[in-house]
Design a protein around this nucleic acid. Structure first.
Length: 587
RNA sequence: GCCCCGGUAGCUCAAUAGGAUAGAGCAAAGCACUCCUAACGCUUAGGUUGACAGUUCGAGUCCCUCCCGGGGCACCA
């Protein structure tokens, strides 16, 4: 927001350093970290240390001298109201009135695109939400879907051209088991309304049957053989039933507001994967141990001449010649760069348990000489577990189905709306309940670091209080309410001609941080930064709401505050939109 | 055994590429509703940041050695 001024100041600081025979400074600006202090700050400790060049001296004292010298030199630049040297820091305080106008004008002018960065002419792919067909869609699958979606939003907002890719697991032992069960016990049946639940039920039924009757494994192996020779009737059944799952997933994605630009299926890469394995053998990278009844492997540590175990041994084809996930992942990576040759990065949002797998895939591709291999990145996240550290498992039925969670959350939200706003129409109530329910589900998954385990329990999942999406949505509603009640057109650009109160200062400060925070969140792949900012904004707005009257204020103050309310609402709405959460008009 | 990730208030989590005074929510105790929607606000209490030793002007953050928890390590996905 103050880039031009900041640059000018940086130049002055450099000039100062040059003329005082100080080393070139490495300037990093931060916010002044005291509430009510409003502006930019940088420190000179490193510069002070460097200036001693090994000699002894008091670094804090020297840093303070430099800061004071610079403060003297630059005076008070345009746009700032105060320049101070404090404890080795140079603090530049914004001119409140000017800064206010600049922030608010920018937000209101840009509207929904406030915070978005310059287009970078750079394409990236985010692969996320790899659900298995013929299985349930449960809360454990939710994190990849939500995280990947929001990372895509963030990268897009930061300026990248983002390709959103899904990679459903549509073939494998789980599918074969499902088909076996269907052919023998459910032939001709079709799913009802809850498609993914039904698909999941049939899968756990199949698992149970096979666990109880191990002798039936023969029948399953026979189904696998029919698949391997692509028996037309079986392939047709697979296609039809697979589509059921995909329809069910689409329904879930629609309800969550998540979309994809492209789909890859692991069944697409069995053949091309095997070809790549063959190629790796020929290049001498992979070793074919099949003559000794072994698999095809890449001995990564050995190939790299490493003495300690790091990449270990990577199995890329089963001894019977059938494809593994690893086989398919090699081909998938290549396909992505064939389809999108300009990708500067290809992200895989997959849980942390597959970290070694992906380092092996990428390292193998690098050894094979694919120059894009170093542009592949695994984005690991921790799993969602049940209380008591129980992992959700479709087989064991220790799952919370996404359908159930969505229904419960929406139902809970609906109860509250009915209580609070009985006068709204049923449609409006439903819409609000959907927005609140979805927000309540998404926010907790996004507001902890990717490396932290999320423990799912119903009580906290359905708790709408405290630091949660409904709190932020409610702040938007309050802002909206003021604007509606004011019943006037928004006043034009203006410079506040009254002393700003503390809540206003804090609120404007936070609004102005959104563009920068989007860049940080995209750079670090951390939605947490945006969930935090959105919450801080809502909290600051609620402070403002309780302490600063708008409609009853005198005209000059009212006009200024109305613009602030509109800008705050926009900043909160935009932040929520990045998180895939919508703010209702009332609630 | 080797590798990765975590350990911060009673609980769940923050702390912007080492920076100024470690912050929120929940739970607890109390207050508050004639006033733009109380899904709100205010007050109180709560900390040797797992331990030890280092590096630095400055360490929750980096390094060493440990402890505790989770995960991964040849044909599962």
């Amino acid at each position: 927001m103050f880039e031009a001024e900041q640059k000018g100041i940086e130049e002055q600081i450099r000039a100062y350093c040059a003329s005082h025979s100080l080393p070139e400074p490495n300037l990093r600006w931060t916010w002044i970290p005291f509430s009510g202090q409003w502006g930019l700050s940088t420190s000179f400790f490193q510069l002070a240390a460097a200036s001693f060049n090994g000699q002894k001296g008091s670094i804090p004292q020297k840093a303070q001298e430099i800061a004071a010298g610079i403060a003297d030199q630059i005076g008070i630049p345009d746009g700032f109201s105060k320049v101070e040297a404090v404890n080795g820091y140079l603090n530049l305080t914004f001119d409140p009135a000017l800064y206010t106008r600049r922030v608010i004008d920018t937000v209101l002018e840009l509207g929904g695109s406030y915070g978005r960065g310059k287009r970078l002419d750079e394409q990236v792919m985010v692969e996320f939400s790899q659900p298995n067909t013929h299985k349930a869609f449960h809360v454990g699958h939710l994190r990849s879907a939500i995280l990947g979606d929001v990372l895509s939003n963030l990268l897009d907002a930061a300026g990248y051209d983002v390709v959103r890719a899904n990679y459903p697991g549509d073939m494998g032992l789980h599918v074969i088991k499902w088909l076996w069960n269907y052919e023998n016990f459910h032939l001709g049946e079709k799913p009802g309304r809850d498609i993914t639940r039904w698909m999941g039920d049939l899968y756990s039924e199949a698992s149970k049957r096979l666990d109880e009757n191990p002798e039936l494994d023969n029948e399953v192996r026979e189904v696998y053989r029919r698949w391997d020779r692509r028996e037309p009737a079986l392939v047709a059944l697979w296609k039809e039933t697979r589509q059921w799952s995909l329809d069910g997933f689409t329904e879930m994605y629609n309800r969550l507001g998540i979309h994809f630009d492209t789909y890859y299926f692991n069944s697409m890469f069995e053949d091309s994967g095997r070809e790549m394995v063959q190629d790796l053998i020929q290049k001498g990278i992979a070793e074919d141990e099949r003559p000794d009844n072994g698999p095809v492997v890449v001995k990564l540590d050995e190939k790299l001449g490493l003495k300690t175990e790091k990449y270990r041994v990577f199995v890329i084809l089963r001894s019977d010649g059938t494809a593994l996930y690893a086989t398919e992942d090699l081909a998938l990576a290549r396909q992505k760069f064939t389809d999108y040759p300009d990708l500067s990065r290809s992200y895989y949002v997959v849980d942390v348990r597959q970290s070694l797998h992906f380092t092996q895939v990428f390292k193998t591709l690098e050894l094979a000489g694919y120059d894009w291999a170093t542009r592949c990145f695994h984005v690991p996240y921790e799993i969602v577990s049940m209380p008591g550290n129980v992992v959700m498992s479709s087989r064991e039925g220790s799952v919370v189905l996404l359908e159930d969670l969505l229904r419960e959350a929406t139902e809970r939200a609906l109860q509250v709306v009915r209580e609070k706003n009985p006068e709204l129409s049923e449609d409006q109530k439903q819409e609000i309940a959907r927005a609140v329910g979805i927000g309540a589900i998404k926010y907790p998954m996004l507001t902890r670091d990717n490396t932290k385990v999320v423990t799912f329990d119903w009580q906290s999942a359905l708790d709408f209080n405290g630091q949660a999406a409904p709190y932020i949505q409610y702040a938007c509603v309050r802002a909206n309410s003021i604007l509606r009640k004011a019943a006037v057109n928004l006043p034009g650009s203006l410079i506040p001609d009254y002393p700003l109160s503390q809540p206003e200062v804090v609120l404007i400060d936070l609004i102005g941080r959104l563009p920068n925070e989007i860049q940080n969140a995209a750079r670090d792949l951390r939605p947490l930064l945006i969930t935090t900012l959105a919450y801080d904004l809502a909290k600051a707005f609620n402070d403002f709401y309780t302490q600063c009257p708008v409609i009853q204020a005198e005209e000059n103050i009212r006009n200024s505050r109305l613009r602030l309310v509109a800008a705050a609402k926009q900043a909160m709405t935009n932040s929520l939109a990045l998180l895939g959460i919508t703010a209702p008009q009332a609630m």
